[in-house]
Computed example of a mutant assay.
Amino acid sequence: MIITEPTIRKFTQNIFLAIGCGQEHAQLAADVLLKSDLRGIDSHGVARLSGYVRLWEKGRINPTPNIRVVHETPTTATVDGDAGLGLVVAPFAMQVALQKAELYGSGWVSVRNSNHFGIAGYHALMAVEKDMIGFAMTNASPLVAPTFSNERLLGTNPMCYAFPAGNYPPVIVDMATSAAANGKLEIAQRSGKQVPEGWIQDAEGNFTTDPHALKSGGSLLPLGSDRDHGSHKGFGLSATVDILSAVLSGANYGPWVPPFVAFMDPAKDPVGEGIGHFVGAMRVDGFRPVDEFKHHLDNWIERFKSATTVDPSQNVIIPGEPELEAEIDRMQNGIPLVDAVVNDLNELAVRFGVQQLK
């Protein structure tokens, strides 16, 4: 089903209002989710809305949080999200980082006591809008086994780096540090398809293409899949995200991260508060004039776009290009939602007395 962006936006806002969010927070949370759907990252958009409602039902999401800075220096801070929606907490933290960067050249904020924050790209792009370089990362449900293990100890732990360009769209490197995001498994589950080999292992540590394998003790694999293909590098990147997001802030880390997925329960012996994020911003003009940087990033883009390719019908894809193309198309033509997601959302509509999607 194809649904217009304004229709889905209004629907999403109404659900957040129904669970007790204020108008400003409901609008912001909806904006973060819609950005994901618009950019073609269907795994992190409104398909996740029922997941947030589920956490609210369990008392794990506070719809009216007192988000605050609990520790800071001129260029750094720690934010306590008061168990609020990560969709709201992370933008607050990025605003703190931007304010510090405006004054001192860079700002770095670690966050504790938060929840799932949507796509990392949303938060990093807040810096690009001010001609800064943006960073955003978060730890997540422990679904990933480190290299050589079959024990789920890490999340998909995404990270994003965003750079402002001149005549071209920003370069946005937004990725999970696992072989695949859990949301892609959920997409495969909804469509009844298998997943590529190298994404998941079963409980015994063997590769499997069954997207349901996590529910029977399996685990996602780090970026690289196995040691021969560099999984130790994916493990290292994921560890970096976990340490900056949680060990640094006082959030839960590793296997203690409260899960977003329905088939897992939170650890009974938490080592911190909620999940953690890490965001940052750096002023480009702290290094060289902004126009010079943008000119040379444009030149960088043009050189890579003109690279000789193995298949002449394909071009090198600059990070962020596919998402921008999707956003342009979906703003004009609507957002495609699979039947399973529409049915899930309409169940929420009936429950909360919101107009159903048609």
Rank of each mutant, 00 (worst) to 15 (best):
P289R: 07
A213H: 09
F11P: 02
L324C: 01
V247S: 08
G224F: 07
F11L: 01
F117Q: 00
G198T: 04
G218M: 13
D242Y: 04
G280T: 00
G218R: 12
G40H: 06
L214Q: 08
G234F: 14
Q314L: 15
W108S: 09
Y161D: 04
N206V: 06
L153A: 08
A326R: 12
F148M: 12
P336R: 06
L85M: 14
V338R: 12
E323K: 09
N62M: 05
W108H: 13
L244W: 05
P258E: 07
T309D: 10
L125I: 06
P169K: 15
V32E: 02
F148H: 15
G166Y: 02
F148S: 11
A246K: 00
A349M: 01
I2W: 01
N182Y: 14
I318R: 05
S231Q: 10
M264Y: 06
T208N: 10
L49H: 06
V279K: 04
V279I: 14
N315G: 14
G272R: 08
F304S: 07
A90K: 04
G217M: 11
K35R: 15
A127Y: 00
I133A: 05
F92E: 01
E204G: 12
C21V: 06
T4F: 01
Q356N: 02
F287P: 09
P91W: 03
T147I: 08
K294V: 09
F260D: 10
N62S: 07
P319T: 11
K233F: 09
L244R: 00
G250I: 01
V310G: 00
G230Q: 10
K268L: 10
A136K: 04
S36L: 03
D82I: 03
N115Q: 06
H229N: 15
V89P: 06
C160H: 11
Y104L: 07
F352W: 02
L38E: 03
G134L: 02
S313G: 01
F92L: 03
T7A: 14
E5G: 03
V279D: 00
R330N: 06
E102T: 08
I133Y: 03
W199V: 12
S114E: 09
H71V: 05
L297D: 05
S141W: 12
H296F: 14
A180S: 14
